[in-house]
Every structure is written in structure tokens, then in C-alpha cells.
Amino acid sequence: MANIAAQRIKREFKEVIKSEEVAKCAIKLELVNDSFTELKGEIAGPPDTPYEGGNFVLEIKVPETYPFNPPKVRFVTKIWHPNISSVTGAICLDILKDQWAAAMTLRTVLLSLQALLSAAEPDDPQDAVVAKQYKENLEMFESTARHWTNIYAGGPDLNKDFNDKIRKLVEMGVEEHQARVALSSYNWDLERATEQLFS
């Protein structure tokens, strides 16, 4: 790894550790290896969003050309969000692509991601299914996102209705996550989800 990248990550790491956001438990950063090429980030779901109360883990890979190129970031925790792939966790965020600037840091990236959770951009989607639901049925989107936060990120809101529907599909032999994806994609219409799963 280029010296400047490792040196900068070292500096940034210290910066994040000391930051007030860490003190408030809003963001977290951990080293994965000694060479500062891979880190584990964590952001708290912002208040007044369906993600409130959840903790979202991020995989951060630092390229050798950092900070001249952005770090590669994806969600490890499964999340229901128009700009984040519900399958791979890939993130559609301009500053992680062409809008990256060398003066940005891991701290600003984590804060930007947190902001993205508060303000989705359905017109520039990463997950088309989620984005469609967001635009057509915001209420349904929010309860689905809340349910995913509950299941995968430790969020507080338990949705009994959704869980019952998933259990029905699981009893039919469908894998649980697969059942959740199908139901989420079809606005929790059990019949249509079943049809899609068994077609």
C-alpha cells in the first residue's frame, strides 16, 4: 500500500476514535487488518427514520490510490433502502463515485451514509424494487424497512403480521431470507409472493 494511504488512514482512524460522533455512538470504526487496507465501519440508524435503533455494519476497503480515489464501501448488514442493494449491500452514493474529493475522510463518508439513510434518493436507485415501493407506497416502504431493521440490525420494532407471513412461507419450505425478500418485493401480498417463489 502506498505510504500516503496507510499514513492517512492511521490519522483518520485516530480522528474518528476521538470524534464526538463516536462518543455519541453514532458511528464506529474498527481495523480489520494491520495494513490499514480494510476497516469495519458501523453507523447507527438516524432518529425519526425506519432505521432508528438499528446498527448497520459496513465493509470498507481502502485502495492503494487513496485518498485520490474513494474507499470502497458496502453494507454488510442487510438493509431495505432505495439506494442500497438489498442483495449485495452495494451503495449508490455520488461521493463514493465521481463526487469523491481527496479532502473527504472516512468520518465524512460514514456521516454521509448516515445522512443517506435519512434522505433516500429514489430517482437514483441502486435497488429498483425498493425504489418503486418507496415512490408508490411510502407507508409500505417504511414498515418494510423498519421490519428489516428489526430483523437484521437489531431495531426495536417487531412486526407480528410480517413475521407470521414469513413463517407461513418457511413452513412451505422456503428459506427465511428468500421469503422475506419475496414478501417485501410484493408489498407483503402473501399470494403473489408465493406465486413468484413457486413459479
Binding site: 500516503i4 499514513q7 492517512r8 492511521k10 485520490f68 479532502a103 475522510t105
Partner: peptide
């Protein structure tokens, strides 16, 4: 604080942070 010197913001390069 540690063994490396952290410069004041006005003396720090925003790219390499040194």
C-alpha cells in the same frame, strides 16, 4: 499525543493530513 505530530489545521494538508 502519540509519537506522531498532529499539525494545526492551517498547517495541515487536507489530502495527506500531515
Amino acid at each position: 499525543e502519540d509519537d506522531t505530530q498532529v499539525p494545526e489545521a492551517r498547517f495541515e494538508c487536507p489530502i495527506c493530513l500531515t
